[in-house]
């Protein structure tokens, strides 16, 4: 046989690519086993294709691992009842304790119902003893089987519980992340909106290092406050934002503790018109008119 011609026929490539019919596959395998040159050529083809495949490697997106493995497990569990019996008879690779113990009670149990009848007719004492033995063995096997099954069930229960816990944890984390994302999305929208005017509120002599910013949209009247740094208010006190319209202070609402700490933007009361904004320290819940002595920051619209 002309080895070179066989190699050039392209049949080894088709074999490696898996597009050959079964009959031709067997033929290729026979020839390859007989001719080391062919074996060498085929190995080169296969590793060439494997290299090409590996070059395309792509890390699957996060979360896929859990989904795929869970889906796989569910699928093989669903198929298990039918296939375990078949495979148990076909070949013995899977000898888990359960299939070994579980089928055993059955064949032993069956004689119990059929045995007593002939036992009464002849040789009653000996048969009776045998019957008792069979029953005890059956009982023991069944107990052992039950024990194994009970253990399996317990393990499954534990695994399920752990999986449910994990899932709840992931769900909670995701929910939190989603919430944060949407609030940050809203903040970003405000920050990017050209209609908002930014008013820098600088610290007063009472708190020189204090700094905050008001974002004011004169068209929609919306007001947001963004704190850079404010001294922590005394216990029972809260920061309150005021809009100054023609020298008159207008209440714009109190700042949540997290806002005062600089965690995020906070939307305040809508303000119809203002030339400046200021913050004072007031009793919790806010005051009707500002306590000017506690004014912490102040800034004018440009």
């Amino acid at each position: 046989m002309d080895i070179q011609q066989y190699i050039e026929s392209g049949i080894l490539e088709e074999y490696a690519l898996g597009v050959l019919p079964a009959a031709n596959r067997a033929e290729v395998e026979r020839l390859v086993a007989a001719h080391p040159e062919l074996q060498h050529e085929l190995n080169a083809i296969i590793s060439g294709l494997d290299t090409y495949a590996e070059a395309h490697a792509l890390t699957p997106p996060p979360g896929m691992r859990e989904r795929v493995l869970a889906g796989w497990q569910q699928a093989i569990r669903a198929e298990a009842p039918g296939t375990t019996q078949a495979s148990a008879t076909a070949e013995p690779p899977y000898v888990a304790p359960q299939p070994a113990a579980a089928p055993a009670p059955e064949p032993v149990v069956r004689p119990i119902s059929s045995a007593p009848e002939p036992a009464i007719r002849e040789e009653a004492p000996r048969r009776g003893f045998g019957w008792l033995m069979a029953a005890s063995v059956a009982l023991l096997l069944s107990m052992a089987g039950n024990y194994v099954l009970y253990n399996r069930w317990q393990n499954t229960e534990t695994a399920l519980f752990a999986a449910q816990n994990d899932q709840a944890r992931f769900a909670a984390t995701q929910q939190a992340a989603e919430k944060q994302l949407s609030s940050q999305g809203r903040e970003l929208a405000v920050l990017r909106d050209v209609q908002f005017q930014s008013v820098t509120l600088a610290g007063t002599p009472a708190a020189p290092s204090a700094k905050a910013r008001v974002l004011y949209n004169p068209a929609t009247k919306a007001v947001y406050v963004d704190v850079h740094s404010l001294p922590a208010p005394p216990a029972g006190k809260q920061y309150q934002l005021w809009a100054l319209d023609n020298g008159q202070p207008v209440d714009a609402g109190v700042l949540a503790a997290s806002t005062a700490a600089g965690d995020s933007l906070q939307q305040m009361k809508n303000i119809v018109s203002a030339q400046a904004f200021a913050m004072t320290v007031e009793n919790e819940g806010g005051s009707a008119s500002p306590t000017l002595a506690t004014m912490t920051v102040l800034g004018k619209l440009l």
């Binding site: 050039e8 392209g10 490539e13 080169a44 083809i45 590793s47 060439g48 294709l49 290299t51 090409y52």
Partner: peptide
């Protein structure tokens, strides 16, 4: 095909 696969197999 043969030439291509040969190139690939040399890149191992």
């Amino acid at each position: 095909a043969r030439a291509a696969i040969k190139v690939l197999s040399k890149l191992i």
